[in-house]
C-alpha cells in the first residue's frame, strides 16, 4: 500500500459540451504525486487547472483516462465508496470557501466527522482542535457571515484537515484574500505539509507557488512545465 504514490493520473481527458460548443478542458494530463509532496499548479484562466483539481478531488469524472488514488482506480467506485473517499482520503479547500451558511464555524468543521460517523463529543473536541490549529478557537460559535474572508477560508482549511486526510487539495485558496489573510492560510498549509500531508494547490500567484516543493504549469489542458523547487524555509523569506 505505502509504495503507491498518493495520486497518479494517466492521460486524463475532459471534454465539456458537444459538437460546435465542445471544449477540451484537459487534453491528456499525466501526473504522479508522491506522499508528502507539496505541488503548486499554475496556469492562466481556462488552462484546465480547476477541472484537473475537481477530478483529483473526486468531485467530477474525467471523460477518459485513469485516476489512481492510493493505488485504487477511482472510476470503479460507486457513489457510496466515492463518498467514503471524499470523506476519509481528501480534504478539499475551495476558492469560494463553500461553508454552509447560517451554521457556526465549529459545526461546519464537524461536518466531515459527522459523515464519518464519529460521536458528537469526540467530534466537537477534534473540530475545536482543528480550529485552534488555524488560530480561530475563539471564533468557533461565529457563523460564516460574521467572519472575514480570511477567517472563512481558515475555517474551510480546518474543515479540510479535521479528518486528517493524506491529501489536501486547495483550489486557489488565497484567490479571494488580502495579503495578510493569504499569509495566514499559507502558514497553515506549510505546517500541514511539514507534518507529512500531501498538498496540491492551484494558484496564479508566484508568491504563493514559491511555498511549494514542485511547480507544474498547465497551458490549454496540457502540462508544459514540471520542476522541483529547491529551497527550504521559504515561509521565512516571504513573511
Amino acid at each position: 500500500m505505502t509504495n503507491h504514490p498518493v495520486l497518479e493520473v494517466r492521460n486524463l481527458v475532459k471534454v465539456y459540451g458537444e459538437g460546435e460548443a465542445q471544449v477540451r478542458a484537459l487534453r491528456g494530463v499525466s501526473l504522479t504525486v508522491e506522499r508528502g509532496d507539496y505541488v503548486a499548479i499554475m496556469g492562466s484562466s481556462g488552462s484546465g487547472k480547476s477541472t484537473l483539481m475537481n477530478i483529483l478531488g473526486c468531485l467530477d469524472t474525467p471523460t477518459s483516462g485513469r485516476y489512481l488514488l492510493d493505488g485504487v482506480d477511482v472510476s470503479r467506485l460507486d457513489d457510496r465508496q466515492l463518498a467514503l473517499v471524499r470523506n476519509r482520503r481528501i480534504g478539499f479547500v475551495f476558492q469560494a470557501f463553500n461553508l454552509i451558511p447560517r451554521t457556526s464555524a465549529v459545526s461546519n468543521v464537524e461536518l466531515p466527522l459527522a459523515y464519518a460517523g464519529m460521536k458528537a463529543a469526540e467530534r466537537r473536541r477534534r473540530a475545536l482542535a482543528a480550529l485552534g490549529m488555524v488560530g480561530l478557537a475563539d471564533r468557533a460559535d461565529h457563523e460564516p457571515n460574521q467572519l472575514s474572508g480570511g477567517q472563512q477560508q481558515r475555517v474551510a482549511v480546518a474543515r479540510a484537515l479535521v479528518t486528517a486526510p493524506a491529501l489536501v487539495l486547495a483550489d486557489e485558496p488565497t484567490g479571494n484574500l488580502d495579503t495578510r489573510s493569504t499569509a495566514d492560510v499559507l502558514a497553515v498549509l506549510d505546517r500541514l505539509n511539514r507534518s507529512g500531508r500531501t498538498i496540491v494547490l492551484i494558484t496564479h500567484e508566484d508568491d504563493v507557488a514559491r511555498h511549494a516543493k514542485r511547480l507544474i504549469r498547465l497551458v490549454d489542458g496540457q502540462i508544459v512545465h514540471d520542476e522541483v523547487l529547491h529551497h527550504s524555509g521559504n515561509t521565512a523569506v516571504l513573511t
Binding site: G57, L59, D79, R80, A83, L84, V85, R86, N87, R88, F92, F94, N98, L99, I100, P101, L111, P112, Y115, A116, R159, T163
Partner: peptide
Amino acid sequence: TREIGIRKALGAPKRT
C-alpha cells in the same frame, strides 16, 4: 442545491 454539493464534497453519501 449548492449546500447539497458542499455536503457531498465533504463525503456525505446520497442516502444521508
